[in-house]
């Protein structure tokens, strides 16, 4: 995280934060870092929007069994996002197609976005963190 400071407006409105997560859930710690950052930001009343891009869509597969690899289930932690008031979730349409996951059930709050929609998300926030 760079030296992000709240908007200089002096108003109480928190900065709009977008987290872009492009990694699969296992095999590296990046996806987990994105999720931990999201939960921490939410605890600061800055519930971020989450954009699942590229391999990031693989985090959304249902029925992940973390126990099979003695790790925590990334999918189960994602299930807790509504309790953290994180309810803006965007999913890369092209990536779903690439992995043959276009029929996969998505979180209730999720919205599938195309390239134009992704651009709009990037423009519509104050800070972007990529994982």
């Amino acid at each position: 995280m760079a030296s992000d400071t709240p908007k200089a407006s002096g108003q109480a409105e928190p900065p709009r934060l977008l987290l872009v997560t492009r990694s699969p859930p296992y095999g590296s710690s990046l996806a987990r870092s994105a999720l931990d950052t999201a939960l921490a930001a939410a605890a600061f009343d800055m519930a971020p929007a989450l954009l699942f891009l590229d391999h990031g869509v693989l985090q959304l597969l249902p029925q992940q069994e973390g126990a099979a690899s003695e790790t925590r289930s990334h999918g189960k932690v994602l299930d807790s996002l509504p309790l953290y008031d994180i309810d803006r979730i965007y999913v890369d349409a092209a990536a779903l197609l690439h992995f043959g996951l276009q029929d996969m059930p998505l979180p209730a709050a999720a919205e599938v976005v195309d390239s134009t929609g992704i651009r709009a998300l990037l423009e519509g926030c104050d800070h972007i963190l990529s994982f």
Partner: peptide
């Protein structure tokens, strides 16, 4: 059991 994580206060 449900979320594979301990909750913060808000959740």
């Amino acid at each position: 059991t449900e979320f594979d994580s301990s909750p913060a206060m808000r959740p």
